[in-house]
Design a protein around this nucleic acid. Structure first.
Lengths: 348, 348
DNA sequence: ACTCGAAATGTGAACGTTCAAATCCGCCTC
DNA sequence: GAGGCGGATTTGAACGTTCACATTTCGAGT
């Protein structure tokens, strides 16, 4: 039994072709267009491919097809603290799903966070990536405009806030998530429900606040002063939550724009000796490990699904409109006035 | 002024060669071996490269050189909770540094965490990566053995615990970090210094505990019972820290194997109304954003440096022994009995 | 038997780069 | 002034694949 392999490196398409006694192109067709190959030939070639462990060289394919088969993802684009960031988690899902979409993910960082475009250009110029997955979209984001002007494929996790004509995005409906949290707390008997959010101007934060306003209005529980804002920082959140919690009083509840803010509030409750859930309702947002560790109810983003959809957008035809995915409410001890719920429950 | 570019796509080496009136190879030399080119030619070609925005096609280079110019990094290899994981942060540094090392990083995940090898094989077979950066090395790790048996380049962030003959690793000296923390607390006047670690068996955790044993023995403060263990989980840490803190008493101090554990202890202190730093000393490990937010002293791993060194190992000649980097003590309020230190201080 | 067409398979060329070897050219030496 | 030397530059070939097209095969229809 001959090895049939090149000495150095792994089997090439020619090794398989010789072993199966067919031409290069037939092997190529077996891999890429199996329907064009006669059944017995297909079987024979497939067998040799398996025996030799042949896998097409990405480099050769890329060169011929003039594409890299990879999507760039900018890491840490804002340079901000990464506490409990869902983006790390999104990257993991994106990486996992990319396998099915027969592409891979190339992370990169921009040396200068204010002008990210050169880093994007760099990846394209070297033909390392064919296009990009945008995360952390924001107001005045220069990237979507530039990418479209240059005809570069991209899709975003996060709405493209400035321009409704960009439809290549997938996002999670934060307002709906917060609204579900409010309704859940109301069902559990809380009749004073406040909101701790981020300072106005952040589109994601504003969106989440909208959910609170809408739900409390619908339920006849609206009180404009039952809210406060804080940066995405534990110490700041704790400072902001204190007065709000005191204003709401024992037996009330609080929905937060993020788990970090919720943990800040949780610290305040602990300081006051109030037990989350029993003495005061609390719901966070993002379902970070932090929330799980503290048995904090929270709103979970469907990150795996979002990653899948983003890759669909990149691979396939453009969609007519953005896609808003519903988040999932994860109910834990911090929103259960009765000491029920021994097992974790989920509501969509 | 002619554009000189191929209509579709960006400028190729031939476009530059024609524009500068030299051959392909001279342009190639300008890019890869500038010393071989005469100064005036170099200047002329360099100018054309800049004007046309030429960057060598990675795909073509990869094909010719039979290497991918990329290193694979397995994400989330243990599938465990990722709370405050330094690995995400390491990935960011690795990505940033990879640019200088003229390679890029390809993250991937293994479908089955117990048998990661097929996923590694997959990346190699497709020639997507030339080798790997290993993280989260552990006892009975099958990866180093397999990689070496197959002659695949790799370097690890984390010691290769089972086999001292594998020297391609960079790690942070956890024992030294904990020792520095203990000595710092002793200098600040704390004379009862406990340790909250992970359950025995984790090499990283055992290493860090060693630092506490060594330092307390040196200082004559050793007390075997002033320690407790907990999994890397906030609730568990809080439960484990309670009795330990009570046993040590007000005015004592605690060094923890991670920031997560330290936050668990911090929660206990808060519940007892003890102010961290003033009533009880506390030092964590990893310098996560969590620690910064709570003004927690901690031990910072030099991740950027570690990433650089790992890439050095991959690119260059093998080293005779592994490299142990010293961590840096970050002093914040939680270890300052006097309410000093308005600005953050660092000690190496 | 002969043509025709579709299905199956094979061939030449090209993607853009780098390696190895060949050529060019000015200058020094004897 | 022929020969040689060495630095600078060019030429031919190849990396492994897929595209576009050419060729072969085979069975059905006349």
């Amino acid at each position: 039994m001959t090895s049939g392999r090149t000495v150095r490196g792994r089997a090439t398409i020619m090794d398989v072709a010789r072993a199966a006694e067919v031409s290069r192109q037939t092997v190529s067709n077996v891999v890429n267009q199996p329907s064009r190959v006669a059944p017995d030939t297909l079987a024979r070639v497939t067998k040799e491919i398996a025996r030799l462990g042949f896998r097409p060289s990405r480099a050769a394919r890329n060169l011929k097809q003039e594409r890299a088969g990879a999507w760039g993802v900018e890491l840490n684009s804002r340079g901000a603290g990464r506490l409990g960031s869902v983006l790390d988690s999104f990257l993991v899902h994106l990486t996992t799903r990319s396998r099915r979409h027969d592409a891979h993910i190339v992370p990169f960082t921009a040396p200068d966070h204010e002008t990210p475009i050169p880093a994007y250009q760099d990846l394209l110029a070297s033909r390392i990536a064919d296009g990009f997955v945008l995360t952390d979209t924001r107001h005045e984001d220069p990237r979507p405009q530039w990418l479209r002007d240059n005809g570069i494929p991209f899709a975003a996790f996060g709405r493209i806030w400035d321009d409704p004509s960009h439809t290549a995005w997938v996002d999670v409906d934060g307002a709906a998530g917060v609204e579900a949290a409010v309704r859940h707390l109301a069902e559990r008997g809380f009749d004073r429900i406040g909101f701790l959010g981020w300072p106005p101007g952040s589109p994601v934060g504003d969106d989440r606040r909208t959910g609170w306003s809408r739900a409390t209005a619908d339920l006849g529980l609206a009180r404009a002063d039952w809210q406060a804002t804080s940066a995405q920082d534990l110490a700041a959140a704790s400072a902001a939550a204190g007065p709000l919690i005191d204003g709401l009083g024992r037996g009330a509840a609080l929905v937060c724009a993020s788990d970090v803010l919720a943990v800040g509030a949780w610290v305040c409750l602990t300081e006051r000796g109030w037990r989350p859930g029993l003495d005061f309702g609390l719901v966070g947002f993002d379902d970070t490990d932090l929330a799980a560790a503290l048995r904090l109810s929270t709103v979970r983003q469907p990150l795996a699904d979002a990653a899948d959809r983003v890759l669909d957008l990149l691979g396939g035809e453009p969609s007519a409109s953005g896609l808003l995915l519903p988040p999932e409410l994860v109910i834990r001890a911090s929103s259960s006035p009765r000491a029920t719920a021994p097992t974790e429950m989920r509501h969509t």
